[in-house]
Design a protein around this nucleic acid. Structure first.
Lengths: 343, 343
DNA sequence: GTTAGCACTCATGTTTATCGAGTGCTAATT
DNA sequence: AATTAGCACTCGATAAACATGAGTGCTAAC
């Protein structure tokens, strides 16, 4: 177990390193007014802490820096809670005060606030949309050749596609098709749409429309060619400002990794509810081994969950980031709840 | 005027430097099989070309690199046309072959193709939406408290907002309001909406709805709180791969500049029709003085214009980029025309 | 148990030397 | 008169040699 003094020293080192990014030596610590031991004593303690794996040296005669295990201990036991400044709180409040927002905008703004307030990179994962229900399907002809299909879910999510109307498709058929679809599909969860169409709608369509095949291809195309982008990233530039990323090769690797949506999304999706802290090599993705990733979950309505996250160097302001993510995820959950209850 | 030989030498130097990013010396040039002069001769010519301002040295005894004036001359007089590979052409064609696309998707994909095929950063500016006309306004209640407003223009552009319904607003009023709005506003250009509402709709609303004030605030909020994002950027990471951006400070500056939407948008907006080449310091923005920017215009329907652009180092593959932008902008124009004619 | 003292380590910065690609100029060649 | 060979010179890049100083570990004194 660690003694009080060791705890103090560890805390001082980590706090300092988080802000300066420089190895810290015994003398510097002993000079602090809240530390009343000589540098020699500190040196001894530091040697012990290093032996226990909480500290590292960059070279044999350098000052100490925290190891990943050190950060882990800090996050789990040592960190003092962070009080967000009134200014920051205001910024957040004012954003959620706005009555008129669609989901995408809230998320985008949240991502921006997160990255602005921390100078790290924020990543927000939207909720799985598949469980949401179809509220309305509309096909609106723009002219002879083209139309726009608009699909609204019960969560207020809107998808739309423009398309060209195949030559020879009767407008009346199109209209009928849409009417039938709305009749039958309202309230059906998105992920069941396909099945439902196959089972119930196809026969109906066959009966009622003269050009069944075309209408059908249509629906298919309009409804299911989606690849829902659910990843919102903000402040990618911030990561370049960190001194640990002064060599461009690292930045490149990291950026490439972030841009691979199908790498990041599952990672975030697989996190537990609440706050998660993933430090350095705890991350399964090699490209993020120099980083820490803090995630927090938010809820959209009763069922759907999304994740907000901050990506920064392992030398991260854990305390601040965690507070911020807490506040923001709660605020998001609250806001979405107010939108979607009784739906 | 430049002699044939000088033209040849200039061309060789620029072509070479575009691919290697290394200063090139007289000996290297004289060794090429299409050049039959000795290094001494070449040296003399290079000295002349430098005096005329087409070449530069990085230091007193280095090989030559093209000056910005050199690139300018190259682009205007020297560049040989570039034939896109069949592979590249296929990629482009296949994308536009897809019948089912909304504007945003075409633009996003185009941006991606541009950056993938060139390894530069692509920027696409959407058309001014203000001239487009309102096709339909719909307000769809999701539940007691919230609704989604959907606005469709004649170009198939869809805007939507979720909002909470003020307590006490009668559903019937909401419905009436929407009906009145659709009646009066269909076909009105977006930028005239506000005026039209003030002039014709307000009185109507007063007459027909019991709670005029609330309905009105509503419309206002739903229709006019937009900040149309019209800038699509792809391949920002590419710029970091260029050897001229190996020091991170430059990258930071450039990235910050690109992220300032209101810096870039007007710059692109102000370009002439067709292809424009802006080399280094010809660019008014200091942050882009190390870059060249090639722009091309595309048309959306009869009236609206947008811009596609590629941003790379001044040492850019001008020939390829220009060909590519040409093909793509034409293809976009053609595609959009087919969508929106007779609207 | 704590601390002063001291020899030792190593990253960083500076100086100096070497190397070689490339130039400009002059004189010889075509 | 145009071209080219020859040569001294320049200067960035790389490496080696050296000084500096922040920081350590260890021992002995307090």
């Amino acid at each position: 177990m660690l003694t009080e003094r060791q705890l103090l020293i560890l805390q001082v080192i980590i706090d300092d390193f988080i802000h300066t990014a420089q190895p810290i030596g015994s003398r510097a610590i002993s000079k602090r007014e809240d530390v009343k031991y000589s540098s020699a004593t500190i040196r001894n303690e530091m040697a012990d802490l290093e032996e226990m794996g909480f500290l590292e040296k960059t070279h044999s005669s350098s000052g100490r820096i925290p190891s990943e295990q050190g950060y882990r201990f800090y996050v789990d036991h040592l960190m003092s809670p962070f009080l967000l400044s009134g200014q920051d709180m205001n910024l957040i409040q004012s954003m959620f005060g706005d009555q008129l927002m669609e989901f995408e905008r809230v998320v985008n703004k949240s991502a921006q606030i997160l990255s602005d307030l921390t100078n790290y990179t924020s990543i927000i994962l939207g909720p799985e949309v598949f469980e949401t229900e179809l509220k309305q399907l509309q096909i609106l002809p723009l002219n002879n050749q083209s139309a726009v299909a608009i699909l609204v879910t019960n969560t207020g999510h809107v998808e739309h596609r423009s398309f060209t109307i195949p030559v020879g498709l009767e407008p009346s058929d199109l209209e009928k098709t849409v009417r039938i679809l709305n009749d039958k599909l309202k309230g059906v969860p998105i992920y069941k749409l396909n099945e439902k169409i196959e089972r119930e709608v196809v026969t109906l369509l066959k009966k009622h429309t003269t050009d069944f095949k075309k209408s059908y291809d249509y629906i298919q195309a309009a409804l299911f060619s989606e690849e829902p982008t659910q990843l919102y990233v903000s402040g990618k530039t911030n990561i370049m400002m960190q001194p640990e990323f002064k060599d461009i090769e690292k930045v490149r690797n990291l950026f490439s990794a972030i841009e691979e949506e199908n790498q990041i999304a599952p990672l975030l999706r697989s996190q537990n509810k609440g706050i998660n802290v993933i430090i350095g090599h705890e991350n399964e993705h090699a490209a993020m081994r120099d980083c820490s990733l803090i995630t927090a979950s938010y809820a959209l309505g009763e069922e759907h969950m999304g994740t907000i996250a901050l990506l920064g160097p392992t030398r991260m302001e854990y305390s601040k980031v965690i507070s911020l993510l807490n506040v923001l995820s709660n605020q998001m959950t609250k806001t979405f709840k107010s939108w979607y209850q009784n739906s």
